[in-house]
Amino acid sequence: MAVLSVRDVKVSYGANEALKGVSFEAVSGAVGLLGPNGAGKSTLIKALLNLVPLSSGAFTVLGQESARLGSGLRDQVGYVPESQGIRAGLSGVAWVALLGEVSGLPRRAAVERAHETLQYVGLGEARYREGQTYSTGMQQRLKLAAALVHDPALVLLDEPTAGMDPTGRDEMLELCRDLVKQGKTLLFSTHILKDVEAVCSRVVILHKGKVAACAGLEEVTRGEAQHFLVQWEGKRDEFVAACQQAGWKAGDGQNNLLKVVLPQGAGPRELFGLASGLQGSIHRFVREETSLEEVFLEALAKETV
């Protein structure tokens, strides 16, 4: 059963259609929600929390339809907002405990859970200080603690590493990976590709309110085409021309090697077969993983066209 299933969700702000029929599923683990600024990532997260009304479409959380259960569904969902989202004048533990109570925990349990989650995110020492005195990194962790206090099955994180220094970012990503190991499902919205690569097993790329790509991370980076880096001992131009004649893309790659892109159906056998008919030899042969960045830019380019 999918933890989160989004079916043809549309959201409009007046005449502006922010989401134009988004559909995807999160079965388990961490799903990265990637997209440039204005793609609709935050709008989608807010729609899932009923913070913006849906124009059409629906979603289910743990198999339960959003329309039928209403606010009770949000006991299963935690939310880390992008900006602010911390009550001034309250200590970290008081704020998290308050949100625990709002999520239904009895008062004593809420305070205990607040201490636990703050220890978990590494704010044990600072939990009695007022939230607005925290650094940016600490505030992000405070928001994560607040999202976890009621032990939700699904956690929606909107730019959780925004404004954090490299150490803080690594620690936040480590926490996210640990949450996945604990059985939580994360929807990790960000425009930082490295964060998605570090945490997520599945990626949804949004562009201008539509899903530009949606697949497992390995699947997306490997892609249908196969990319190879080749060290050719012989006339480079001859080799490149032969590849192009065969209908393969060939050109300069990294580290002075040649890059050859073979379509589905062709493999190393065909490449070596072509090379054997030329004057020269292949001295090095490495399969190149497509970076998420390339996939991301390609998906955006497709959507733009």
Binding site: S71, S103, G104, L105, A109, Y120, G122, H150, D178
Partner: peptide, 17 residues
């Protein structure tokens, strides 16, 4: 590790909506 203790699940009661 950055966290002193692992994540703990909550299995207690929840108040009515």
């Amino acid at each position: 590790p950055i966290f002193d203790q692992g994540y703990q699940a909550y299995g207690g009661e929840r108040r009515a909506l």
